[in-house]
Nucleic acid binder design. Sequence first.
DNA 1: ATGCATGAGTT
DNA 2: ACTCATGCATA
Length: 337
Amino acid sequence: MMAMNAKQPFTMHAALQEPKYSSLHSSSEAMRRVCLPAPQLQGNIFGSFDESLLARAEALAAVDIVSHGKSHPFKPDATYHTMSSVPCTSTSSTVPISHPSALTSHPHHSVHQGLDGDLLDHISPTLTVSGMGAPDHTVMSAQIHPHHLGAMGHLHQAMGMGHPHPVSTHNGMPCINDVESDPRELEAFAERFQQRRIKLGVTQADVGAALANLKIPGVGSLSQSTICRFESLTLSHNNMIALKPVLQAWLEEAEAAYREKNTKPELFNGSERKRKRTSIAAPEKRSLEAYFAIQPRPSSEKIAAIAEKLDLKKNVVRVWFCNQRQKQKRMKYSAVH
DNA sequence: ATGCATGAGTT
DNA sequence: ACTCATGCATA
């Protein structure tokens, strides 16, 4: 199979995951769905729909090239290899990060229209935009599954059932979620967190590793990536809400230890995995984006067709679409405020 | 900081 | 097969 971790993925998960957030997403998504080229296609069935769709997307991709200031010398190939090399000593490294300028400017447009039989199936009539109201705190249960890395317990059911610090611990009702951290407070915390962290001279990677030392039931270590994303608010709202108390706990302890000269010797490591990251070349990426604009959720068959056209592995294409969807969804409260 | 990927839990 | 949280590898 693919690369495996030397660590065991823990089996735990959020026990309560609310059905679906509607108001929240509909509003944010509504914002994105602004305009689109609206390519009209004939309603051919299983005929040349693939061709026309691909052609359409490619045409769109071609048009987009104009506004492309980046050039990727990469090849669209999926290089997979698992090799073990030196267990990169420690994770400490200079962290120059100091500006949360993160901002996703991916103008993705969604086209919902009958393109062909298959597409019709996926057309989501959820285009009813009522203008975003105030989705702010739609705090629901947050789920955290620290699989890849071991040394983590279960932090599921955390927020929802009130784990770390159930602020408004209900009054006797079986209320499931506590709403306390409004997006604004979250942003403020994220910034404060980074500031304090840097002051302590701790890297994002260090924080991630140190979390395991907190011995908080259900809380294990996290990666530098996640800490970084937290600080830059590039996680889903749920994820942010879930991680906040944990990081807050670490911050408090770290500062306390700092004051009393208690150095925290928590630096473990044990990553021996080397995975080659697939790089999708610019042209292919442009095509994918064009397809995505037309159909964010292509069927398996379409994915296969696209993969063939672009000479990419089907799985690479599938994952690309998944990630693209995830990106489009990510909570950027900043935009909604 | 971010792109591509994995995996548990859902649908 | 999808979503969501998260991670490794890399720009």
